[in-house]
């Protein structure tokens, strides 16, 4: 392993010629993160560029919501202001969830460690010759995280609306039993969307910027009892922010995959009622 003369092997330090003396499997966690994130990015990119199979009545894939481009019938609940957009409709809105997650404090930690090896694990020397952290362009842009948080709240509301719509009755050809199609419907897709929206909200509300905005920025909690209470709640959620980050990543992908399989006719929706 390459040694350096600016870090743990620089002249004044105790002379030890290895970058770490750790004997545990410190590489396991960054490796796992690397593999899972890469898989997600590949999957999400493919699906986002596909531009089809994102709607299976009454379910709309979270990658395509709100569907503002030239979307298939029934998918656009907020109109089609970007109907002229020649590419996949996912590309219009994905910048918001993508930006939110890329600038998230938890994801930053995870990808700085797993992708940039800065550092790969605690007490394991990083391979870079120089380091300026988040002080310069482009990483100084991480400071806009709270703007993506505002957007993420809106996206969360839209996805909540989609989840409500997932209870819509199915069209006649999906009818089961005596052909009943009116009233509400619930299928496995609805259930997956409920789980997904729960994780999305847990993730969004446990955000560090949210914690700061609701009350963390105050210096006198005693003068703002309501905001103090909110801050206490968000702080509790915030302790598991990393967990919500992972769970919501999986749930989004699973909902999309389920809808893809429905839309392509590979499987049939499991209907509860």
């Amino acid at each position: 392993m390459a040694t350096t003369d600016h870090g743990v092997t620089s002249p004044t330090r105790a002379r030890i010629d290895v970058r770490t003396l750790r004997q545990d499997r410190w590489w396991l966690s960054p490796l796992t993160t690397f593999v899972v994130f890469t898989a997600f990015v590949v999957y999400a990119t493919l699906r986002a560029f596909m531009g089809r199979d994102y709607y299976a009545t009454p379910y709309l894939s979270p990658f395509y919501s709100p569907c503002l481009g030239d979307c298939v019938e029934g998918a656009s609940d907020f109109g089609q202001p970007f109907a002229w957009w020649p590419l996949s409709a996912a590309l219009i809105i994905l910048i918001f969830p993508l930006g939110f997650r890329m600038t998230c404090y938890y994801y930053r930690k995870a990808y700085y460690r797993a992708f940039w090896l800065s550092p790969p694990a605690c007490g394991v020397a990083e391979p870079h010759g120089s380091y300026s952290g988040e002080t310069r362009f482009p990483l100084i842009l991480q400071n806009v995280h709270r703007w993506f948080w505002y957007a993420a709240v809106l996206v969360g509301l839209v996805l909540t609306f989609d989840t409500v719509l997932a209870f819509r009755p199915m069209p006649a050809e999906y009818a089961v039993g005596d052909g009943e199609t009116s009233g509400v419907h619930m299928g496995l897709g609805t259930l997956l969307m409920i789980v997904n929206i729960a994780f999305i909200w847990l993730y969004t509300l446990s955000c560090h910027s949210c914690r700061h905005i609701v009350g963390g920025r105050l210096r006198h909690f005693s003068r703002h009892p309501v905001r103090y209470r909110l801050w206490t709640w968000v702080s509790r959620l915030n302790e598991s922010h990393g967990r919500w980050a992972w769970y919501s990543l999986f749930s989004v992908a699973i909902v999309d995959l389920y809808i893809y399989l429905l839309a392509t006719g590979t499987i049939q929706d499991v209907r509860f009622f």
Binding site: Y105, R108, K109, Y112, R113, S118, P119, C122, G123, Y131, S132, G133, E134, T135, L139, I140
Partner: peptide
Amino acid sequence: AGLGMCNITKCCTEV
């Protein structure tokens, strides 16, 4: 103090 140099990788918290 160079707060921006920290990339919140959390090793300080770990130890």
